[in-house]
Computed example of a mutant assay.
Amino acid sequence: MTPNSSVQVAPNINMVTNFPSDSQGRLIATMPDDTMDGEIECRATIIIDNQPRKYLEDGIFAFFADGIFMVKRLQFLPDGILVLPNNKHYLDWKIEPSGDCNLVIIGRVVLSLSERKH
């Protein structure tokens, strides 16, 4: 994977994760937190398209940042990647190419499934 940004992205994500997959080979995970509330609810099941892409476009991605699993909107800029939580209680932050952040993008989130508890 090579983004339209100078931040490096690991090309082989399968060596860092063992998520189960659906019948189409997409990965299945659980939204780990409430940072995307309003878009993806905490503990919702998410489907991640992890097919290799030559260029990444802005969108919601599952990734590891310094070994922590995250799901956030990413905006690819010429000088880094802007991380944009949907929940107003969390701040935006930037991953810069010269920074110490180890970023591994797993793939784009293509579906979220929330369960209603009654």
Rank of each mutant, 00 (worst) to 15 (best):
R26L: 06
L77F: 08
S21A: 13
H89D: 10
A10D: 08
I46P: 05
R53P: 03
L74N: 01
F69K: 10
G25C: 11
A44R: 11
T17G: 08
R116W: 06
D58W: 05
L113N: 09
E57P: 00
I105V: 15
D22N: 15
I81E: 00
H118W: 10
D34E: 15
A62S: 06
D34P: 15
I60L: 07
I47D: 02
P20L: 08
W93I: 05
S5K: 12
P52H: 01
Q75S: 13
E96Y: 08
K88E: 11
M1E: 05
D37Y: 05
D79E: 12
L27W: 04
S5A: 08
N4K: 14
T45P: 01
A44F: 12
L74G: 03
G38S: 14
L82F: 04
I105H: 07
P32R: 11
Q51A: 14
V16Q: 06
N86C: 09
V104F: 01
N4R: 14
A44Q: 13
L77H: 10
P11G: 08
T17A: 15
M70E: 05
I68W: 02
D37L: 12
F19L: 14
D92A: 14
D22V: 07
N12G: 04
I46R: 02
P32T: 09
P52G: 00
I40G: 05
T45K: 14
Q51S: 15
I95E: 02
L27Y: 13
S114E: 08
F76V: 01
V9C: 03
H89G: 09
P85L: 02
S114R: 11
W93V: 06
E41Q: 12
D58Y: 01
D37C: 05
Q75L: 07
G99V: 03
R116G: 10
L113K: 08
D33E: 08
P20N: 09
Y90T: 08
Y90C: 06
M31Y: 10
P11W: 07
F61P: 01
T35C: 12
I48D: 03
N18Q: 15
I46A: 06
V83Y: 06
I48E: 04
L111A: 06
L91K: 12
L74H: 00
M31P: 04
E39Y: 13
N4S: 15
S23N: 13
D92K: 15
P11F: 06
M36V: 10
I40C: 10
A65F: 00
T35N: 10
I28R: 12
K72I: 00
T30G: 11
A10I: 10
P32Q: 09
G107I: 02
K72E: 00
E57R: 02
I46D: 03
F76M: 04
G38E: 10
P11V: 12
I106C: 03
D33N: 13
E115W: 13
